[in-house]
């Protein structure tokens, strides 16, 4: 029930994001979701793509520093209080969120939230136990 994400190191300077996205476009990679985290010096671009192996090969081929890691995708109805219901479960189970980002499905009915937990397995177990829909990687890559 884990989703694989690819992260790219970016220096904080103009052109960095363009470079990465151009490499992905040239390799015909489709980005499903992304988040860009930044500090004063550097940024981390986190991506979920349709073909992670191909994306890794293309980015590495350009000398970029990348890392593959696992995150959790949770589907919730796109309405008020949706996020609250998840965070409540996380608090009750003492799960720490390292970071999260969200997007809305094409149909517009559901939102998908990508989480990075301190303990990924405990996070998934707690969400499933409380009736949340945790999406498989295959499903997210094909969205």
């Amino acid at each position: 029930m884990k989703v694989e994400q690819i992260s790219v190191f970016l220096e904080n300077k103009p052109g960095g994001l363009e470079h990465v996205t151009r490499v992905l476009a040239d390799a015909d990679i489709n980005i499903r979701a992304l988040s860009l985290a930044d500090t004063s010096d550097f940024g981390i671009l986190r991506l979920i793509v349709n073909d992670i192996d191909l994306a890794e090969k293309a980015l590495k081929g350009e000398g970029l520093t990348i890392k593959r890691s696992h995150v959790v995708a949770v589907e919730i109805p796109d309405r008020s209080g949706g996020m609250l219901s998840i965070s409540k479960v996380l608090t009750e189970n003492n799960i720490n969120v390292e970071y999260a980002y969200a997007f809305v499905e094409k149909s517009g009915e559901n939102a998908i939230i990508i989480f990075r937990f301190n303990d990924i397995d405990a996070g998934i177990a707690a969400l499933i136990k409380n009736g949340f829909t945790v999406l498989s990687g295959e499903k997210v890559y094909r969205l």
Binding site: Q5, S7, F9, A37, T39, F42, I44, R46, T65, I66, K67, S69, E98, Y99, R116
Partner: peptide, 14 residues
């Protein structure tokens, strides 16, 4: 940056 130390979490890089 090297592949060995890069992480998807800002706090590990800091």
């Amino acid at each position: 940056m090297s592949g060995d130390i890069f992480s998807d979490e800002i706090k590990s890089l800091q």
